[in-house]
């Protein structure tokens, strides 16, 4: 199956044709953050976000640290990360990119906001050439756990949760 190429900011019409199990390639500017910073982003007002040049409409948040060692997905079901999924979807985040299964509440929240959860392999070495630029977008004091803005070229992923369906639940039922 050929991957669907998506460019940020992702317009609603680009989301409409996607399904659980689709292969994606994501390009453009995305945000990267994890346990420490995502609750802080949730707590910020639109004006505070705008002051830092952060626009969540049509955006992608990659659940990863950013460090000299590179990037790679962290477990998205860690409480602070999973709790950011509903409020950030409500504010325009269209793709949450990470790894591992999510709870029923998150599946419902994603559905309500027409956002999706995608997973990617921990391919740090492979991604090295696909991260074209990185800069800190907010909370530099958090070091590798700050919010980063990344310019990326074709990050591979698979749609895991969308339209109220979860690929993980399908496996659990079969297993």
């Amino acid at each position: 199956m050929r991957p669907v190429c998506l460019e940020t900011p992702i317009p609603p019409e680009a989301m409409a044709g996607l399904h659980v199990g689709d292969f994606l390639e994501i390009s453009g500017v995305i945000y990267a953050g994890r346990d420490a910073v995502l609750p802080k982003i949730v707590a910020m007002s639109d004006a505070e976000l705008a002051a830092r040049g952060i626009d969540l409409e049509g955006s992608v948040i990659f659940h990863t640290a950013v460090s000299v060692a590179g990037v790679g997905p962290t477990t998205s079901s860690k409480i602070e990360i999973e709790e950011s999924i509903a409020p950030l979807s409500a504010r325009g985040v269209r793709i949450h990119l990470g790894k591992g299964r999510l709870k029923a509440d998150s599946i419902r929240a994603l559905h309500a906001h027409a956002s999706l959860f995608a997973v990617t392999t921990p391919s740090t070495a492979l991604l090295t050439d696909r991260i074209l630029a990185t800069e800190i977008a907010a909370f530099p004091e958090l070091g590798m756990e700050a919010l980063y803005r990344l310019r990326v070229d074709r990050i591979p992923a698979v749609v895991a949760i969308f339209h109220g369906e979860s690929i993980f639940e399908q496996q659990a039922q079969r297993g």
Binding site: G70, P122, T128
Partner: peptide, 20 residues
């Protein structure tokens, strides 16, 4: 993907994963 990543990591002596 896991294998391709390992090939690149080995060839260029890069971390296999950012969680080292």
């Amino acid at each position: 993907q896991f294998l391709e990543n390992a090939d690149v990591a080995e060839r260029r002596t890069l971390p296999l994963c950012d969680d080292t």
